[in-house]
């Protein structure tokens, strides 16, 4: 049994190469729950919390890359919240302040739960997920990265390094439904991003399918109804129809947190509201 706490990505990757079965631990907010609840028995662990590269934020004129280990609390305010407002909003809804001090995009991506709050934002922004192994680097589209319920395209010898997303001109927002007014797992969530330059809208839904769902048909339908390159007020009827179309693309299930019918209803309302908010600003 061993614990390795590497300082650099290179050290982390060589530790992984030396011990491919080692458990990668980022913030711990998912994995430690599994250990505490007797669902996982760690033998060897590589803890990534000291790898500075995984907390880096890189901005060029068009894109922003956020290190997979950057805690959510760093995204709630400041530059990230300014450049990617939907991510700032989503970050603020993650768990509690204590969780946001530890949890990160890397954790959301690694666990790949459809309820992970960061994921709809990454999906709506067509983020690229940057992966590295000892021998190679690759970037995978978020849409290909999320494979199924709690399954992703990361290979066992890879580390999630960062997510890169475009800095988009236009309104963007995230909204979430939970049964409590704080510290709640999403029953349904929605991210909407308007790209004024491209004249497109992107909508992604959380917790209403095996993975986060992009609503491409609703997006395309809307583009035929509104000139998204112009700032336009969205009337309630249009927003409602948009919401209905979004909802038809959801694939929700009944579980102990909610029902499929409610989830479908909720994403219709959330997406309609976000669309209206986008027009109001």
């Amino acid at each position: 049994m061993s614990v390795v706490v590497p300082r650099t990505l290179t050290d982390a990757l060589s530790a992984m190469a030396a011990n491919p079965s080692a458990l990668l631990l980022q913030g711990g907010t998912d994995l430690m729950v599994e250990i505490n609840f007797n669902h996982r028995k760690p033998v060897d662990v590589i803890a990534l919390r000291r790898v500075a590269e995984l907390r880096a934020v890189k901005i060029d004129g068009k894109t922003i890359s956020i290190g997979a280990g950057l805690p959510y609390q760093e995204m709630e305010t400041g530059q990230i919240a300014q450049l990617v407002p939907a991510l700032g909003q989503a970050a603020r809804t993650v768990g509690s302040p204590q969780i946001r001090a530890a949890g990160s995009l890397g954790g959301n991506l690694g666990t790949c739960s459809p309820a992970g709050d960061g994921l709809p934002v990454l999906s709506a922004l067509d983020a690229m997920i940057n992966l590295r192994s000892a021998s190679a680097s690759r970037a995978v589209s978020i849409h290909e990265f999320m494979v199924g319920v709690k399954r992703n395209a990361k290979m066992p010898d890879e580390i999630i390094v960062s997510a890169t997303m475009p800095i988009v001109r236009g309104w963007q927002g995230y909204a979430k439904v939970g049964v409590r007014n704080a510290m709640v797992i999403s029953v349904a969530s929605c991210c909407l991003v308007v790209d004024r330059a491209a004249g497109t809208v992107a909508v992604a839904l959380g917790a209403v399918g095996p993975t986060v769902i992009r609503c491409r048909q609703a997006e395309q339908w809307l583009a035929t109804k509104v000139d998204l390159k112009q700032t336009a007020t969205i009337d309630a009827k249009l927003a409602a129809e948009f919401g209905q179309r979004v909802a038809t693309e959801a694939r929700p299930i009944d579980d102990h947190r909610s029902t499929a019918d409610y989830r479908r209803h909720a994403v219709a309302k959330l997406s309609g509201r976000l669309l209206q908010r986008s027009g109001a600003q």
Partner: peptide, 12 residues
């Protein structure tokens, strides 16, 4: 309602 989830606006 909804708090930081930005779920609801006053008009809702």
């Amino acid at each position: 309602v909804g708090g930081t989830g930005l779920t609801s606006l006053p008009e809702n």
